[in-house]
Write a protein that binds this DNA or RNA. Structure first.
Ligand SMILES: [Mn+2]
Ligand SMILES: [Mn+2]
Ligand SMILES: [Zn+2]
Ligand SMILES: [Zn+2]
Lengths: 151, 151
DNA sequence: GTATTTATTGCAACTGATTGCAATAAGGAG
DNA sequence: CTCCTTATTGCAATCAGTTGCAATAAATAC
Protein backbone atom coordinates (compact mmCIF):
# COMPACT_ATOMS: atom_id res chain seq x y z
CA UNK A 1 0.00 0.00 0.00
CA UNK A 2 2.84 2.36 0.71
CA UNK A 3 6.54 2.58 0.24
CA UNK A 4 6.86 4.11 3.72
CA UNK A 5 5.37 1.52 6.07
CA UNK A 6 7.06 2.82 9.24
CA UNK A 7 6.15 6.42 8.54
CA UNK A 8 2.54 5.48 7.81
CA UNK A 9 2.25 3.42 10.99
CA UNK A 10 3.57 6.27 13.14
CA UNK A 11 1.18 8.73 11.48
CA UNK A 12 -1.79 6.47 12.18
CA UNK A 13 -0.74 6.10 15.78
CA UNK A 14 -0.80 9.91 16.06
CA UNK A 15 -4.36 10.00 14.63
CA UNK A 16 -3.35 11.09 11.13
CA UNK A 17 -4.38 9.41 7.89
CA UNK A 18 -2.43 8.30 4.86
CA UNK A 19 -4.24 9.44 1.73
CA UNK A 20 -3.33 9.10 -1.97
CA UNK A 21 -3.07 12.91 -2.10
CA UNK A 22 -0.60 12.94 0.78
CA UNK A 23 1.49 10.16 -0.69
CA UNK A 24 1.56 11.82 -4.12
CA UNK A 25 2.91 15.07 -2.67
CA UNK A 26 5.64 13.21 -0.81
CA UNK A 27 6.43 11.17 -3.94
CA UNK A 28 6.77 14.30 -6.10
CA UNK A 29 9.38 15.64 -3.69
CA UNK A 30 11.13 12.27 -3.33
CA UNK A 31 11.44 11.94 -7.11
CA UNK A 32 12.96 15.38 -7.55
CA UNK A 33 16.67 16.09 -7.29
CA UNK A 34 16.08 19.78 -6.65
CA UNK A 35 13.88 22.25 -4.79
CA UNK A 36 10.36 22.49 -6.23
CA UNK A 37 7.80 25.28 -6.11
CA UNK A 38 4.20 24.55 -5.12
CA UNK A 39 3.19 25.07 -8.75
CA UNK A 40 5.73 22.48 -9.91
CA UNK A 41 4.56 20.02 -7.28
CA UNK A 42 0.93 20.48 -8.33
CA UNK A 43 1.88 19.93 -11.99
CA UNK A 44 3.75 16.72 -11.18
CA UNK A 45 1.06 15.35 -8.89
CA UNK A 46 -1.62 16.02 -11.49
CA UNK A 47 0.07 13.69 -13.99
CA UNK A 48 -1.44 10.91 -11.85
CA UNK A 49 -4.31 12.75 -10.13
CA UNK A 50 -5.56 15.27 -12.70
CA UNK A 51 -8.22 16.81 -10.47
CA UNK A 52 -6.24 17.06 -7.23
CA UNK A 53 -7.03 20.33 -5.52
CA UNK A 54 -4.32 22.83 -4.78
CA UNK A 55 -5.55 23.31 -1.17
CA UNK A 56 -4.79 19.66 -0.49
CA UNK A 57 -1.28 20.12 -1.84
CA UNK A 58 -0.62 23.22 0.25
CA UNK A 59 -2.12 21.62 3.35
CA UNK A 60 -0.04 18.49 2.90
CA UNK A 61 3.12 20.49 2.36
CA UNK A 62 2.40 22.30 5.64
CA UNK A 63 1.65 18.98 7.32
CA UNK A 64 4.85 17.31 6.11
CA UNK A 65 6.80 20.41 7.15
CA UNK A 66 5.34 20.22 10.67
CA UNK A 67 6.54 16.60 10.83
CA UNK A 68 10.02 17.73 9.80
CA UNK A 69 9.95 15.69 6.56
CA UNK A 70 9.92 18.71 4.27
CA UNK A 71 11.65 22.09 4.24
CA UNK A 72 10.05 25.27 2.97
CA UNK A 73 12.58 27.91 2.02
CA UNK A 74 12.58 31.30 0.33
CA UNK A 75 15.57 31.20 -2.01
CA UNK A 76 14.77 34.58 -3.49
CA UNK A 77 13.06 33.29 -6.65
CA UNK A 78 9.73 34.87 -5.81
CA UNK A 79 8.11 31.66 -4.60
CA UNK A 80 8.63 29.42 -1.61
CA UNK A 81 10.53 26.26 -2.57
CA UNK A 82 10.07 22.80 -1.10
CA UNK A 83 12.57 19.99 -0.57
CA UNK A 84 12.63 16.69 1.30
CA UNK A 85 14.54 16.85 4.56
CA UNK A 86 17.91 15.22 3.92
CA UNK A 87 20.57 13.92 6.25
CA UNK A 88 23.12 15.39 6.52
CA UNK A 89 21.69 18.93 6.50
CA UNK A 90 22.80 21.49 3.98
CA UNK A 91 22.34 25.23 3.51
CA UNK A 92 22.43 27.72 0.68
CA UNK A 93 24.31 30.94 -0.08
CA UNK A 94 22.35 33.07 -2.53
CA UNK A 95 23.85 35.94 -4.50
CA UNK A 96 21.68 39.02 -4.55
CA UNK A 97 23.26 40.13 -7.84
CA UNK A 98 23.48 37.05 -10.08
CA UNK A 99 20.98 34.93 -8.07
CA UNK A 100 23.39 32.00 -8.06
CA UNK A 101 22.59 29.44 -5.34
CA UNK A 102 25.54 27.68 -3.75
CA UNK A 103 24.97 24.63 -1.57
CA UNK A 104 27.17 24.35 1.51
CA UNK A 105 27.20 21.64 4.10
CA UNK A 106 26.02 21.93 7.66
CA UNK A 107 29.51 22.26 9.19
CA UNK A 108 29.57 25.97 8.31
CA UNK A 109 26.68 26.64 10.72
CA UNK A 110 27.54 24.18 13.49
CA UNK A 111 29.55 26.77 15.44
CA UNK A 112 26.68 29.26 15.30
CA UNK A 113 24.29 26.60 16.64
CA UNK A 114 26.56 25.89 19.60
CA UNK A 115 27.03 29.59 20.32
CA UNK A 116 23.27 30.25 20.41
CA UNK A 117 22.81 27.24 22.67
CA UNK A 118 25.62 28.31 25.03
CA UNK A 119 24.89 32.07 25.15
CA UNK A 120 21.09 32.09 25.07
CA UNK A 121 19.99 28.53 25.84
CA UNK A 122 18.31 28.65 22.42
CA UNK A 123 18.03 25.46 20.36
CA UNK A 124 18.12 26.82 16.81
CA UNK A 125 16.54 24.94 13.90
CA UNK A 126 19.60 25.03 11.65
CA UNK A 127 18.14 22.58 9.16
CA UNK A 128 18.06 24.43 5.87
CA UNK A 129 19.22 28.04 5.88
CA UNK A 130 19.11 30.52 3.01
CA UNK A 131 21.75 33.20 3.44
CA UNK A 132 21.71 36.14 1.04
CA UNK A 133 24.73 38.21 0.09
CA UNK A 134 27.17 38.77 -2.76
CA UNK A 135 29.12 35.90 -4.30
CA UNK A 136 32.83 35.89 -5.04
CA UNK A 137 32.40 36.49 -8.79
CA UNK A 138 30.07 39.46 -8.33
CA UNK A 139 32.42 41.03 -5.76
CA UNK A 140 35.29 40.82 -8.24
CA UNK A 141 33.14 42.25 -11.01
CA UNK A 142 31.96 45.12 -8.76
CA UNK A 143 35.57 45.92 -7.81
CA UNK A 144 36.58 46.13 -11.48
CA UNK A 145 33.64 48.39 -12.32
CA UNK A 146 34.53 50.72 -9.45
CA UNK A 147 38.14 50.88 -10.62
CA UNK A 148 37.08 51.70 -14.18
CA UNK A 149 34.71 54.42 -12.91
CA UNK A 150 37.55 55.96 -10.88
CA UNK A 151 39.70 56.47 -13.99
CA UNK B 1 11.02 70.34 2.79
CA UNK B 2 12.54 67.25 4.31
CA UNK B 3 14.15 66.12 7.50
CA UNK B 4 16.61 64.05 5.51
CA UNK B 5 18.39 66.56 3.24
CA UNK B 6 21.44 64.39 2.52
CA UNK B 7 19.38 61.30 1.76
CA UNK B 8 17.09 63.29 -0.54
CA UNK B 9 20.02 64.84 -2.39
CA UNK B 10 21.62 61.45 -3.02
CA UNK B 11 18.31 60.01 -4.24
CA UNK B 12 17.87 62.88 -6.71
CA UNK B 13 21.39 62.39 -7.98
CA UNK B 14 20.51 58.76 -8.72
CA UNK B 15 17.42 59.84 -10.67
CA UNK B 16 14.91 59.07 -7.92
CA UNK B 17 12.26 61.44 -6.58
CA UNK B 18 11.24 62.42 -3.10
CA UNK B 19 7.47 62.30 -2.79
CA UNK B 20 5.16 62.93 0.17
CA UNK B 21 4.13 59.26 -0.03
CA UNK B 22 7.74 58.14 0.18
CA UNK B 23 8.50 60.43 3.07
CA UNK B 24 5.38 59.37 4.98
CA UNK B 25 6.36 55.67 4.76
CA UNK B 26 9.85 56.41 6.05
CA UNK B 27 8.39 58.63 8.80
CA UNK B 28 6.00 55.89 9.96
CA UNK B 29 8.95 53.54 10.41
CA UNK B 30 11.15 56.21 12.00
CA UNK B 31 8.45 57.01 14.56
CA UNK B 32 7.98 53.39 15.58
CA UNK B 33 10.01 51.68 18.27
CA UNK B 34 9.15 48.23 16.95
CA UNK B 35 8.72 46.20 13.77
CA UNK B 36 5.58 47.14 11.82
CA UNK B 37 3.48 45.17 9.38
CA UNK B 38 2.46 46.70 6.03
CA UNK B 39 -1.09 47.03 7.36
CA UNK B 40 0.15 48.98 10.39
CA UNK B 41 2.25 51.24 8.19
CA UNK B 42 -0.71 51.93 5.90
CA UNK B 43 -2.90 52.77 8.91
CA UNK B 44 -0.31 55.20 10.31
CA UNK B 45 0.39 56.86 7.00
CA UNK B 46 -3.33 57.37 6.35
CA UNK B 47 -3.68 59.49 9.47
CA UNK B 48 -2.06 62.21 7.37
CA UNK B 49 -2.79 60.98 3.83
CA UNK B 50 -6.22 59.33 4.07
CA UNK B 51 -6.35 58.24 0.43
CA UNK B 52 -2.80 56.97 0.01
CA UNK B 53 -2.82 53.82 -2.06
CA UNK B 54 -1.45 50.59 -0.68
CA UNK B 55 0.55 49.92 -3.86
CA UNK B 56 2.56 53.06 -3.23
CA UNK B 57 3.28 51.90 0.32
CA UNK B 58 4.42 48.44 -0.83
CA UNK B 59 6.48 49.89 -3.65
CA UNK B 60 8.15 52.38 -1.36
CA UNK B 61 8.90 49.70 1.21
CA UNK B 62 10.57 47.69 -1.54
CA UNK B 63 12.41 50.79 -2.72
CA UNK B 64 13.69 51.71 0.75
CA UNK B 65 14.71 48.07 1.27
CA UNK B 66 16.73 48.13 -1.96
CA UNK B 67 18.53 51.21 -0.65
CA UNK B 68 19.33 49.36 2.58
CA UNK B 69 17.31 51.80 4.71
CA UNK B 70 14.65 49.28 5.69
CA UNK B 71 14.62 45.60 6.62
CA UNK B 72 11.84 43.19 5.70
CA UNK B 73 11.73 40.14 7.91
CA UNK B 74 9.46 37.17 8.48
CA UNK B 75 9.31 36.82 12.26
CA UNK B 76 6.75 34.03 12.08
CA UNK B 77 3.70 36.21 12.81
CA UNK B 78 2.06 35.48 9.47
CA UNK B 79 3.03 38.81 7.89
CA UNK B 80 6.30 40.34 6.79
CA UNK B 81 7.48 42.96 9.27
CA UNK B 82 9.36 46.15 8.48
CA UNK B 83 11.94 48.06 10.48
CA UNK B 84 14.36 50.90 9.85
CA UNK B 85 17.94 49.76 9.40
CA UNK B 86 19.73 50.50 12.66
CA UNK B 87 23.39 50.65 13.54
CA UNK B 88 24.61 48.54 15.22
CA UNK B 89 22.82 45.56 13.64
CA UNK B 90 20.71 43.18 15.67
CA UNK B 91 19.07 39.83 15.07
CA UNK B 92 16.18 37.84 16.50
CA UNK B 93 15.73 34.37 18.00
CA UNK B 94 12.13 33.22 17.62
CA UNK B 95 10.60 30.36 19.59
CA UNK B 96 8.52 28.03 17.47
CA UNK B 97 6.49 27.02 20.54
CA UNK B 98 5.71 30.22 22.47
CA UNK B 99 6.51 32.63 19.58
CA UNK B 100 8.65 34.75 21.89
CA UNK B 101 11.06 37.02 19.99
CA UNK B 102 14.43 37.65 21.61
CA UNK B 103 16.67 40.39 20.28
CA UNK B 104 20.39 39.61 20.21
CA UNK B 105 23.20 41.80 19.04
CA UNK B 106 25.28 41.35 15.95
CA UNK B 107 28.31 39.85 17.72
CA UNK B 108 26.61 36.44 17.79
CA UNK B 109 26.75 36.25 13.98
CA UNK B 110 30.09 37.96 13.35
CA UNK B 111 32.01 34.66 13.39
CA UNK B 112 29.63 33.12 10.85
CA UNK B 113 30.11 36.11 8.56
CA UNK B 114 33.88 35.76 8.68
CA UNK B 115 33.67 32.01 8.09
CA UNK B 116 31.50 32.41 4.97
CA UNK B 117 33.87 35.08 3.68
CA UNK B 118 36.96 32.95 4.32
CA UNK B 119 35.63 29.57 3.16
CA UNK B 120 33.46 30.62 0.21
CA UNK B 121 34.45 34.20 -0.60
CA UNK B 122 30.80 35.03 0.09
CA UNK B 123 29.89 38.43 1.56
CA UNK B 124 26.78 37.61 3.56
CA UNK B 125 24.12 40.24 4.35
CA UNK B 126 24.02 39.61 8.08
CA UNK B 127 21.92 42.68 8.76
CA UNK B 128 18.77 41.41 10.41
CA UNK B 129 18.43 37.67 10.81
CA UNK B 130 15.41 35.75 12.10
CA UNK B 131 16.46 32.41 13.54
CA UNK B 132 13.74 29.97 14.54
CA UNK B 133 14.07 27.30 17.20
CA UNK B 134 13.02 26.50 20.76
CA UNK B 135 13.68 28.92 23.61
CA UNK B 136 15.15 28.01 26.99
CA UNK B 137 11.79 28.09 28.81
CA UNK B 138 10.05 25.84 26.29
CA UNK B 139 12.93 23.34 26.38
CA UNK B 140 12.62 23.10 30.17
CA UNK B 141 8.85 22.72 29.93
CA UNK B 142 9.19 20.00 27.26
CA UNK B 143 11.70 18.10 29.41
CA UNK B 144 9.30 18.16 32.41
CA UNK B 145 6.40 16.92 30.28
CA UNK B 146 8.52 14.07 28.93
CA UNK B 147 9.54 13.09 32.47
CA UNK B 148 5.92 13.11 33.66
CA UNK B 149 4.86 10.99 30.67
CA UNK B 150 7.57 8.43 31.48
CA UNK B 151 6.16 7.82 34.98
C1' DG C 1 -18.78 -7.51 5.33
C1' DT C 2 -21.48 -2.86 8.01
C1' DA C 3 -21.56 1.15 11.09
C1' DT C 4 -19.24 4.98 13.29
C1' DT C 5 -15.97 8.61 13.91
C1' DT C 6 -13.57 12.38 12.28
C1' DA C 7 -9.29 13.70 9.50
C1' DT C 8 -8.97 15.15 5.04
C1' DT C 9 -10.61 16.78 0.71
C1' DG C 10 -12.79 19.86 -2.89
C1' DC C 11 -14.66 23.98 -3.73
C1' DA C 12 -15.50 28.74 -3.55
C1' DA C 13 -14.64 32.87 -1.19
C1' DC C 14 -11.20 35.45 0.61
C1' DT C 15 -6.56 37.75 1.93
C1' DG C 16 -2.12 40.00 1.42
C1' DA C 17 0.66 41.42 -1.91
C1' DT C 18 1.99 42.38 -6.94
C1' DT C 19 1.47 44.12 -11.59
C1' DG C 20 0.01 46.68 -16.04
C1' DC C 21 -1.18 50.86 -17.42
C1' DA C 22 -2.93 55.48 -17.90
C1' DA C 23 -2.82 59.79 -15.15
C1' DT C 24 -0.07 62.61 -12.23
C1' DA C 25 3.48 65.34 -10.51
C1' DA C 26 8.71 65.75 -9.15
C1' DG C 27 12.69 67.62 -10.85
C1' DG C 28 15.48 69.84 -14.23
C1' DA C 29 16.10 73.17 -18.17
C1' DG C 30 15.22 77.48 -20.15
C1' DC D 1 7.45 81.41 -14.05
C1' DT D 2 6.51 77.55 -18.29
C1' DC D 3 7.76 73.37 -20.62
C1' DC D 4 9.48 68.73 -20.80
C1' DT D 5 10.84 64.18 -19.32
C1' DT D 6 9.82 60.31 -16.87
C1' DA D 7 9.62 58.39 -12.00
C1' DT D 8 5.87 57.62 -9.27
C1' DT D 9 1.10 57.17 -8.18
C1' DG D 10 -3.80 55.37 -8.14
C1' DC D 11 -6.65 52.05 -9.65
C1' DA D 12 -8.29 47.70 -11.16
C1' DA D 13 -7.03 43.23 -12.37
C1' DT D 14 -4.39 39.55 -11.06
C1' DC D 15 -1.65 36.20 -8.41
C1' DA D 16 -0.12 32.86 -4.83
C1' DG D 17 -1.63 31.07 -0.96
C1' DT D 18 -5.26 30.46 2.95
C1' DT D 19 -9.64 29.54 5.07
C1' DG D 20 -14.63 28.07 6.15
C1' DC D 21 -17.49 24.57 5.42
C1' DA D 22 -20.08 20.71 3.65
C1' DA D 23 -18.98 16.27 1.42
C1' DT D 24 -15.90 12.44 1.35
C1' DA D 25 -13.34 8.64 2.72
C1' DA D 26 -9.54 6.57 5.98
C1' DA D 27 -9.30 4.09 10.04
C1' DT D 28 -11.15 1.50 13.61
C1' DA D 29 -14.57 -1.43 15.96
C1' DC D 30 -17.71 -4.94 15.48
MN1 LIG E 1 18.34 22.71 -0.23
MN1 LIG F 1 14.62 43.84 14.51
ZN1 LIG G 1 26.78 36.64 -7.84
ZN1 LIG H 1 9.39 29.34 23.81
Amino acid sequence: MSRHPELVASLREAGHRWTPQRESVLAALAESARHLTAEEIIARVRVRYPYLNKSAVYRNLAFLTRLGLVHQTDLGHGHIEYELHQDPHHHHLICRHCHHVLQIDHAALATLGKKLERDFGFQADLDHFAIFGVCKKCQTRAAKTAKRAAR
